[in-house]
Design a protein around this nucleic acid. Sequence first.
DNA 1: TTGTATGCGTTATCAT
DNA 2: ATGATAACGCATACAA
Lengths: 336, 336
Amino acid sequence: MEHLTIKDIAQKLNVSVSTVSRAFNDKYDIKKETRDLILKTAQDMGYRPNPIAKKLLQKRSFNIGIVVPEFVNSFFPEVIIGAQDILLEKGYQVLIMQSNNSWKTELKNVETLVDNMVDGLIISLTSESENLDYYKKLISTKMPMVFFNRIVDELPVSKVLFDDYKWALFATEHLIVQEYKDILHLTGNKSLSLTKNRIKGFEAAHKKYRLPMGSIVHCGFTIEDGEKATLELIKQDKLPRAIFAANDALAIGAMQTLKKHGFKIPEDIAIAGFTESRLAEHTSPSITSVKQPTNDIGQTAAKLLLEQIENDGLFVPQTIVLNGRLNIRESSINVN
Amino acid sequence: MEHLTIKDIAQKLNVSVSTVSRAFNDKYDIKKETRDLILKTAQDMGYRPNPIAKKLLQKRSFNIGIVVPEFVNSFFPEVIIGAQDILLEKGYQVLIMQSNNSWKTELKNVETLVDNMVDGLIISLTSESENLDYYKKLISTKMPMVFFNRIVDELPVSKVLFDDYKWALFATEHLIVQEYKDILHLTGNKSLSLTKNRIKGFEAAHKKYRLPMGSIVHCGFTIEDGEKATLELIKQDKLPRAIFAANDALAIGAMQTLKKHGFKIPEDIAIAGFTESRLAEHTSPSITSVKQPTNDIGQTAAKLLLEQIENDGLFVPQTIVLNGRLNIRESSINVN
DNA sequence: TTGTATGCGTTATCAT
DNA sequence: ATGATAACGCATACAA
């Protein structure tokens, strides 16, 4: 008895398959007693409807796909948890795929989910240029989608964003106000708009205070990248008075390396990061950083997606920008 | 043209659907030219075979499901990456689901994946008692499965494990040898065998050195749990000379709290953890801890699963125990 | 209220 | 080498 079907139950009870089917979809007329009987025997026999067959027929799966570029930083897992909270409650199952920072894997992931007839997709891109044509085509099929965090402006889909510009400006401003006027920005992949926007914020703060522009180092987004870049700065004797890192991992990498070489934080060099995780508060010194509302990002994306699924055709893409906060901690407080 | 089917192509080329189908499954006799023509037009028209229909017929999906209890600690994401590396290479897609530490969600997750006809499952349990009957039934259906990390001994499935007993013993022994003889063990959920085994290792080390048994505090597995428990110890004036924590998060929580209250690590209190993440090396002081081979765990689980899938019926469950290492860092080095 | 028949997109069996 | 047709498990239009 590999897998029970509607037919097995029908035979057992001497009714037709359609009656059994109806018992499971209560929108049809069916005598309450037969319905209850069917449901009960189905339960007893351990029958579960085959969603594959259902999907083939209805093109609806109550599955939602989430695709993220990576799993290493806790940012994406946290967003996923937020989204899942909302979706599970509404009766959807959440299938997660991670792209290992490869746009080819991302493409395969999305294709797999589409092939499996998910009802909608929540996506954060690995690259903002590579799979564009594919996404355009997908959008034209009316597949409900919400992008977050790493997005492409030109795509006509709903987006959940964080105001990278604004918060990078705030963070930089905070350093400037603390009398750190020679600031370097450590960041990653140039082609990501979040990188660009954080740079713009960094620059805007300089302009606002009429300071000479600080330098910018592109190195990546991992702890190791931060370590390498900082080591290079030390070697070349190009250390600034303060470092504004584009994420936690970079800030930690920089801080570890500086400490290892005898520099004191923040006395010698101050540090601020852009938080995508909870690490910053648990280092020592603790690291000043911008906190993104990860859980809220996930929940908002899920809600947008559900709206879109329920409103089917008549849906206008929305962009929601969420707020964060600057957590000022030991690494940037001027003790002089 | 919502979604092209094999039929559309057949019409376009004035051939039968079976011919088109054959073109895609090269095990059949088909003239090379027609085959090429069909493949080319299919490509041009943007046709993709519908895997749902295929699944319904063949009960095979080339999808693998991975279910983990949580996403917050980087342990599980790292394992998943390892497994995915192997599976993608073999042509499988990986669907991930996280159970939010709830056995009910876990049950739903596994059911969803089974319903979607995954070819196999890699699972780490949220609880070792709740879904037992379900898993027993699932095993009896010959569903290929591999459990890791959080497992149930009695289930006849392949398992990938870490020797918690041995490494807890080593870690405790290290503390003892450093002349820390009053050690407390901070740990989580009593019902997990990993908890039990780490406790056994902790106790074995005491016996080996004929020391009076250290006390054990069950508090959870998060940073916050570690903070609370440590605060309680401080209040009750029950601080030991050293703390052996069952994971990183607890160790960090304990260390932060101790530092906040003016204790020096390791001068006043030494700390060792059991690493499920990369946090330990980036705190200060850095934390001595047992490193688990996360990537290897994932890869091994994937390989075991593939063997099982390929050998179909004739498969004997295997248990593989992987090795780790004790990374000795600042938090436990006796400087006196 | 219930049963019969058809189709969702494939693959597989049997003809031709 | 290719075509016609039956299945896979279910939902639904139509009949009864």
